[in-house]
Design a protein around this nucleic acid. Structure first.
Lengths: 335, 335
DNA sequence: ATGAAAGCGCTAACAG
DNA sequence: CTGTTAGCGCTTTCAT
């Protein structure tokens, strides 16, 4: 025997399918008695509404699409967790795709989500995404979208990000106040906001404290641990080594940390080290890592809330929201 | 203007909807010329297939449902990542739910996935899930399921787990060979496989090496870092402290690690410490943490592969597969 | 308070 | 090689 449908329930009770449909959704027109009978029968027959049929009819699902560079990154898994906490309460399920930092795959994911008629989408763009015109499709189809954590300047829609600029500015200012003068920056890709904004914060902190920005101390690379190791090796080969390193994020900082340790460089005596994200591991290192706390869970929750508001709002052309969440410098032993 | 449908394309080209449908899916009956015209028009009109309509018709989606206790846990985010790698290649998208270690929520998630007519489901059960009868619905509806990492003995369907028993056995045997004699175990919940099997491995290793199992050295608790801290405190208050601790997983081991450090207990000189999972942080601790490597990504990939095979197999009653992946003891400084 | 009928967008016999 | 037709399971006017 196949799945129970609304028609099966209707037949059993000798009423019409539309009555069953209404009873199931607690429509005021239906009598208490009928509702009760329908609910009982549904229960007895193991009835489950068919989301596909509902979605087809309503021309929209109760699924929220998510695109992130990599699910397993600490930041993203926490953000997704935060998103799910919010969407779950409102009866939505999440569909998660990873771009693997690849623009092409980001596009394919986007199309899959559109095909699935998701009610809304949350995106953190890939490291190599420069052109963002593929997201225009969402406006055409009136699918609300919120970009979180990583955006770029061409994106005009809703955004939720940490205050990357201020976070970086404060971290570097702190290093300067502690007396460090040759502060290097392990810089992320500048086409994504976290790379650009953190780098700007770094530079402005130097300038505002009367220090020059020395291009040779800005090592550009990716956002993975390995990128940090490579960058650290470059720095160590310099004639004038820096006395401090500010990394675009904790994985990169840890990549540098590992290299410094291997080379028996004392942290922070010879070189201080500051990260960004406050991954749990950073507190456990020895010396523990000074870092800028970035509220991953909070960013996810906030982005999800904004998305749900827009989905459930009747308004057609809501103006884009941009929310910037505060970061927090956590001073530990590495600086 | 609303979304482009197959009918819109048909109208433009003055052909029937079914021809368009077939052309779109590269059906051999359709002429090259027609296919080309259809494809071009589809492209031009920004056509996207409607997964809900397709799903309704085919009575199944191309979505894979996943239920895990917590997305943000290192193990699960890696497993999900592995799952996505596999399903993506076959054109499936993943729908991820978290039970938050709660049985009730696990059920609700399951129902949501069934409603969404997922093609198959991957589950890692919640810490407090004892009764597993809610999964029977899947058999009734012929929805393939693979349990991964955490199962329990009542589950008879497909399973992919690490060799928890052997992993634990080897870790504890190693400790014994190194000369430790009073080995404590921070034990996970015994209704889930990882708790039970690792505990059994621990006990059998002791017995096979002629050591007694001392109940007071088995501290039962959860699987979170905090549980490890609590357990370690208990151990430290004992008149006869253990000389080694084997924890059910790395978070718990780290919880203990933090407490030992705080109390200035030398690891491994006073108390050795061994974890399970090989979270990246374990290599970065000082002393670095000896642990049993559990292939999270691999478990996810394997589970996904088995699921896809079953989904795509014509066979109705495949017999359940149980796959046990090898673990690997990584000896570091903490033991 | 309930029912009849139409249709969401697509696929798959069946018919030519 | 292409078209006709009949639904998939549900919601929603419009009647009654």
């Amino acid at each position: 025997m196949s799945r129970t449908t609304i028609v099966d329930i209707a037949k059993v009770l000798n009423i019409s399918a539309s009555t069953v449909s209404r009873a199931l959704r607690d429509h005021p027109d239906i009598s208490k008695a009928t509702k009760k009978r329908v609910l009982e029968t549904a229960e007895r027959l193991d009835y489950f509404p068919d989301s596909m049929a509902q979605g087809l009819k309503k021309r929209r699902s109760t699924t929220i699409g998510i695109i992130v560079p990599e699910i397993k990154h600490h930041f993203f898994s926490h953000a997704i967790s935060g998103i799910e906490d919010i969407t779950y309460r409102s009866g939505y399920t999440i569909m998660v795709c990873q771009s693997n930092e690849d623009y092409e795959r980001e596009m394919i994911n986007l199309h899959a989500l559109v095909s699935n008629r998701v009610a809304g989408i949350l995106v953190s763009i890939a490291q190599n995404t420069v052109d963002v015109s593929h997201f225009e499709i969402l406006q055409k189809r009136k699918i609300p979208v919120v970009f979180f954590d990583r955006t770029n300047e061409k994106i005009t829609q809703n955004q939720v990000v940490a205050d990357d600029y201020v976070g970086a500015f404060e971290a570097v200012s702190y290093l300067i106040k502690k007396g460090y003068r040759k502060i290097a920056h392990l810089c992320g890709p500048e086409n994504i906001s976290i790379g650009r904004d953190r780098c700007n914060g770094y530079q402005d902190a130097l300038l505002q404290h009367g220090l020059a920005v020395d291009e040779k101390y800005i090592i550009r690379g990716g956002v993975q641990q390995n990128d940090g190791s490579i960058a650290a090796q470059k720095l160590l080969q310099m004639a004038h080594r820096p006395d401090a390193i500010f990394a675009v994020n904790d994985p990169v900082a840890i990549g540098a940390y590992v290299v410094l340790k291997e080379q028996n460089i004392k942290i922070p005596q010879e070189i201080a080290l500051v990260g960004f994200s406050n991954n749990p591991v950073s507190a456990l290192l020895e010396p523990s890592l000074t870092t800028v706390e970035q509220p991953a869970h909070e960013i996810g929750k906030t982005a999800a809330k904004i998305l749900l508001e827009q989905i459930e709002s009747e308004e057609q052309d809501l103006k884009p929201v941009k929310k910037i969440l505060k970061t927090n410098l956590i001073v530990r032993q590495s600086s």
